[in-house]
Design a protein around this nucleic acid. Structure first.
Lengths: 241, 241
DNA sequence: CCATCACTGGATCAATGATCCGGTGAATCG
DNA sequence: CGATTCACCGGATCATTGATCCAGTGATGG
């Protein structure tokens, strides 16, 4: 019982024939203005809602309201609220562009994939708060497959390949999670609170207080540096063996 | 451990006066056997509850019940349920042993810290599902401070130090999160489902299908390998500059 | 003309986070 | 020594939410 990819019963031959005759006379054809509410529409609206109002505001009722239906209806297309989140999350991963596998250097491709991965999550900060679930959607799997494949061309295989791919994935995920968490809406207030907290205890956390709050604002640079370290290590291992 | 915290009307001034005169006659002093429910007791019980029953079962009511009090009472010691989680989470970080800073090699200490960090989170798998919040508790800060300080002795400073410390932290966090997520109670069932899922689509995910499910069972080895890669990169950078 | 089936939603339930408000006893004060 | 304060407790109660029951509705095919 997959998704009912049912086509709205709108595009009948009758309609098309009339349109062929005289497009302008055709009544707006009351295009069943709410196309019968597909799983796709639900997920799309869920993502919009999450982007605009955040995870806490995602409610079956609110979601239904935005879709112009009753909340009960959602449960025909989806079994639980978690389903909605699973689908929305995988949709976010779908935004990650797969690098054109033409580049001869695996490192270039892997870097591009990881950066895109991170960017997608940061475009939808709520996604990082929702990662504690098995990631088995088709879009994640496709990206993971790409990562594995590209590392395979670097000469890795078996458990080592698996471990290195996981290491990269875990690094992006952890980084995005920490950044999205540390960068709430009221960034200014949060930062000031953190700084004050640290300064007040600068005796206990001297190094921390000196460097500033745990994480600065040069998120991109910091991430890139860590990724380079990791990839340096990986590359060094690609040679041997 | 039920019964109300009600104290038998025993501890009157009269009693105390008698006690002063003769210690042996003093009734066991009914030392309010449930110590008046401190924040510490709440947090300890919350962790026990989380360990035993998981995040979903953590309810203010259940927690109160286990503590032998009314749920309302908790709100005197704590402002919200999130407070409880914040405190519990920091408590988990408190389990991470700070390596004895005697070792001359920063890499040894850092490795030990990171491994301990990971172990603590995996001992309390729910903790990984709850990371999407600012980590500002004293225990996290202490560990972060240690990490920064040790990297400072390696010659790093400023944004670079901050970036590398974050990279390491993000890697542990991401790894623990992914492992705790992929290792649910019904590990067997989950693994089989994942394997079947992959095999059925082995045409789409050839490399993945060949290597096995996204992540094997040699979690420790995989983590250690990734950590070594990362630290190799860090160490290489410690030299220059 | 009817039966089926994809699809919808009002009413309703149970669980939960949180608050109102009224206790209770020990310590402190005058 | 009695009254008052204050740390601490909890029953009743609210609003919100995820989810289900069940009664529809309208198009399609027989």
């Amino acid at each position: 019982m997959e998704h009912p990819t049912k086509l709205p019963a709108v595009d009948t031959g009758e309609t098309r024939a009339a349109a062929a005759g005289d497009v302008w006379l055709r009544p707006p054809r009351a295009r069943r203005e709410t196309p019968p509410l597909s799983r796709e529409r639900i997920v799309a609206e869920a993502i919009a809602l999450l982007d605009e109002e955040g995870l806490a505001r995602l409610t079956m009722r609110r979601l239904a309201e935005r879709l112009g239906t009753g909340s009960t209806t959602l449960y025909w297309h989806v079994k639980t609220k978690d389903d909605v989140i699973d689908l929305a999350l995988d949709e976010v991963f779908g935004e990650v562009a797969l690098p054109d596998p033409g580049d001869p250097s695996w490192r270039v491709d892997v870097t591009a994939l990881i950066l895109g991965w991170r960017a997608a999550m940061l475009r939808h900060p709520w996604s990082t708060a929702v990662l504690a679930r098995p990631l088995m959607g088709p879009n994640v799997l496709t990206r993971t497959e790409f990562l594995h494949a590209r590392l395979a061309t670097a000469g890795f295989a078996g458990p080592e390949l698996s471990a290195l791919a996981s290491a990269l994935a875990n690094y992006v995920i952890g980084s995005a999670l920490m950044q999205a968490t540390a960068e709430p809406a009221d960034e200014e207030a949060a930062r000031r609170a953190a700084e004050r907290h640290l300064r007040e205890r600068s005796d206990r956390y001297p190094t921390l207080a000196e460097t500033g709050p745990p994480i600065g604002r040069d998120w991109d640079d910091a991430f890139a540096l860590g990724l380079d370290c990791l990839l340096d290590g990986v590359q060094a291992r690609a040679g041997r063996e």
